[in-house]
């Protein structure tokens, strides 16, 4: 008998490349691909009508001069509005006050909520729910109604606040105190919401991590510092983003009802300035130019912050 040793090979039908996979016809692929876009359409229509169109109009208006009267003419002025805006010292001052408001808000939107969230983690069940409802309550009070009550509390002649601290500060009519009052009242309003956000963030962290850390010998403070806070950082980044982008807006109703930007402009932040240009001075072009500048500024800021928070939140699966 003759023969030879051959290697055992894996069976593979025919040599060469496989035929291309069957593709459904074009119209069928189109029908399958269309639904997601159809679902998006209503939202996009609303955004265009209510956000993008006004934005474009604002942009257009910023190159014109107009006093908001339908009968008066709209004249084209080129970059004159922007030049006027950058020439006045108002803008720089308002910008600085906005920064102060944002920094002043951070304790209320970040520091206090994180502390409260960490400390109240072990309050569970009905007590926990009641506690959170209490913290959240101010959020449900309309800003203008809240402002009325605070005006009364801060009254220099017989207001409760002055009685308690025992010194006659005219809160809403002295430059420094007015700014502080605006920040604290806005903070009082928003802190409950921030506490809820932090609680939600903490609930989302798998309790096994802190359990493992405890077994590994970490003290409670170490678990907080090394495990809980890093895992909470996406939530904290979100809160910082909200604070930076929205603080000035949150203060607006309070400024309008309590100080009208005063005394001597001490509480005029950029949004109030913008509103002041447009609806007190009836200088629509200047207001629009300010609006465009702030919009661009915030877009850049938001993009930067989102980038940072994306980097922070690359963990937890």
């Amino acid at each position: 008998m003759t023969g030879e040793l051959v290697e055992v090979t894996v069976d593979r039908p025919a040599a060469g490349t496989p035929a291309p996979a069957a593709k459904p016809p074009l119209w069928q692929r189109f029908l399958r691909g269309a639904p997601p876009y159809l679902y998006l359409t209503p939202a996009i229509v609303l955004l265009v009508v209510w956000t993008y169109r006004p934005l474009a109009q604002t942009f257009q208006l910023s190159f014109h001069s107009w006093n908001l009267l339908p009968t008066s003419p709209v004249t084209e002025v080129g970059f004159a509005n922007y030049e006027r805006l950058l020439d006045t010292p108002d803008l720089g001052a308002a910008l600085w006050r906005t920064v102060v408001v944002i920094l002043g808000m951070l304790p209320f939107t970040l520091v206090i909520p994180v502390l409260v969230g960490l400390l109240s983690r072990r309050v569970r069940g009905r007590v926990g729910a009641a506690y959170r409802a209490m913290v959240f309550a101010p959020m449900l009070v309309a800003p203008v109604a809240g402002a009325a009550v605070w005006q009364w509390l801060l009254d220099p002649t017989g207001g409760v606040v002055d009685k308690v601290i025992g010194s006659p500060i005219n809160w809403l009519h002295e430059a420094g105190p007015a700014q502080i009052a605006i920040i604290v009242i806005t903070g009082w309003h928003i802190v409950g919401f921030a506490v809820l956000v932090v609680s939600a963030g903490l609930t989302g962290i798998n309790p096994d991590y802190s359990a493992a850390a405890e077994v590994d010998g970490a003290s409670r403070a170490q678990v907080t510092r090394w495990i809980t806070l890093p895992l909470l950082s996406p939530t904290m980044a979100f809160l910082v983003l909200m604070t930076v982008l929205l603080s000035a807006q949150w203060t607006f109703p309070l400024i309008d009802t309590l100080t009208q930007g005063g005394p001597v402009g001490a509480t005029t932040n950029i949004y109030y300035l913008l509103w002041d240009y447009g609806f007190h001075s009836y200088d629509a072009g200047l207001g629009a130019a300010a609006g465009v500048l702030f919009f661009v500024g915030f877009v850049v800021l938001a993009a930067g912050l989102v980038l940072v928070s994306d980097r922070l939140s690359t963990h937890d699966d």
């Binding site: 096994d208 359990a211 590994d216």
Partner: peptide
């Protein structure tokens, strides 16, 4: 933390924000 036991969790419970080296080194760091 006062029991001096080491545990391997069924869910692993690896700290998601730490590298493998720092995960393994965590008990030593503590």
């Amino acid at each position: 933390r006062q029991r001096d036991l080491a545990m391997v969790f069924q869910s692993y419970a690896l700290y998601p924000h730490l590298s493998v080296a720092r995960n393994i080194g965590f008990p030593l760091r503590a």
